[in-house]
Simulated scan of single mutants.
Amino acid sequence: MATADYRIEEDGGSGARLVLTGDWTTTGLGRTPARLERDAGDRAFSGLDLSELDRFDTAGALALVKASRGGLPNDAFDSRPEAGRIYAMVEKLDREAIAAPREANAFVRTFAKIGRGVYDFGQELLLSLAFLGRLITAVGSAAKNPRRIRWPAWFSQAERAGLDAIPIIAVTNFFIGAVIAFLGANLLSQFGAAVFTVQLVAVSVLREFAVVITSVLLAGRSASSFAAEIGSMRMNQEVDAMQVMGVNPFQALVIPRLAAMLVMLPLLTFVGMLAGLFGGALVTWSQLAYGPAFFIQRITEDPMMGTHLMVGMVKAPVFAIVVAAIGCRQGMSVAGDVESLGRRVTSAVVQAIFAIIFLDAVFALIFLELNL
């Protein structure tokens, strides 16, 4: 196979003649079209010599069309009419092709992106409200017919979403309590108030960190799992098959996960509280020489510790509903492709964490107004 090449021969004062050599095909062109287009410029060729041309296809014709913007003579392909027919077809398609739309400037693109974001937010809000309505209806139906409740699914989800998460919940909250104790011991010792490190650890763990850290971990662990499981069933049309068989997908898929999370998150939060207090107690013992008995005594003698415990536990059921609902909602919205599944799983985690932080701030304002 001969590589495509060309020569431009000056033809006296009448112009230039283009001589094509080799195979002007898809595999033989290489970088020749770019060189030819650069050398030809806007000149008009007075003739076309095809005596040294071997093979010619649409790729070669397109390269010739791009390079001969000045035009070719009418008799250019008389010696190779089959090449002329290919060239005429490609030249017509190129001439009639729709020009690429001009890209908008950065200012317009910025506002367009903001508009699409607002539209997507509104659409997500509308779909979430629709999901909430269907969920409330399914819960009411399950309450009216307790015999239809799928208890094995409830216990299975409780084990997977709750019991299996105990190690990571306990370890994470243990280190959170230890870090708080380290910071408190270091800072409060400078003011001669190291004894208040115990209260700092207890209040922060009981009131905020245990429930928030536990919820965030379950948002990354369980919300993503719910979205992936239900989304995979959507992709395989198993949810549609349930509806055909008369099974309510919300009662079979959503309610068991919601109930499991509602039961297990408060229990995991309590485990996180114990682990966080244990981590703080070890640090105060090792850094400040306050033994476990002193740590426990300082906590039990503070009359506000019960209030702090209640504040932390009140948040847990709300966070549980939010995490489970967002995970199932994103799973139910998965389309029929893997890209949609990945996008929805990511959205489930991000939205659940954002909702937890937002609701925690709302609870803080509410309890502040209630002086709790």
Rank of each mutant, 00 (worst) to 15 (best):
V195C: 08
Q251L: 09
L265K: 08
L218N: 14
T214Y: 04
L258F: 09
Q237S: 12
Q237N: 12
L200Q: 01
S215R: 09
A210R: 13
N248L: 04
E238Y: 03
V201A: 10
I255R: 11
A219V: 13
Q251N: 10
Q243P: 04
Q199I: 02
S204I: 01
T214P: 02
V198D: 00
R257P: 00
T197H: 05
R234F: 00
P256S: 04
V247K: 01
E229P: 01
V211T: 15
L253E: 12
S204Q: 03
V198F: 01
V212A: 14
A223N: 07
S204T: 06
M235P: 06
A223P: 08
G246M: 10
V263L: 14
S215T: 06
R257M: 04
L268R: 12
M233T: 01
A252S: 14
L218K: 12
V205N: 10
T214I: 09
A228H: 01
A210I: 11
I255N: 08
P256T: 03
M261D: 08
A252T: 11
L265C: 06
V212P: 09
V211C: 14
L262Y: 07
S225P: 01
D240W: 05
L200H: 01
A194G: 13
V211G: 14
Q199A: 13
A241E: 03
Q251Y: 03
F209H: 05
L267Q: 07
V239R: 13
V247G: 00
L217H: 09
F209Q: 05
A259D: 02
N248M: 08
A259Q: 07
V244K: 13
L258Y: 04
T197V: 11
Q251K: 14
N248W: 04
L262T: 14
A194Q: 15
L218W: 10
S222A: 15
F226D: 00
L206M: 14
V201P: 06
V254A: 14
L200G: 04
D240I: 07
M261H: 03
S224W: 04
F196Y: 14
R234P: 02
S225G: 12
I213S: 14
G192V: 09
S224N: 05
V212I: 15
S215Q: 10
M233H: 00
L217P: 10
A194N: 12
L262P: 02
L267K: 11
A223I: 06
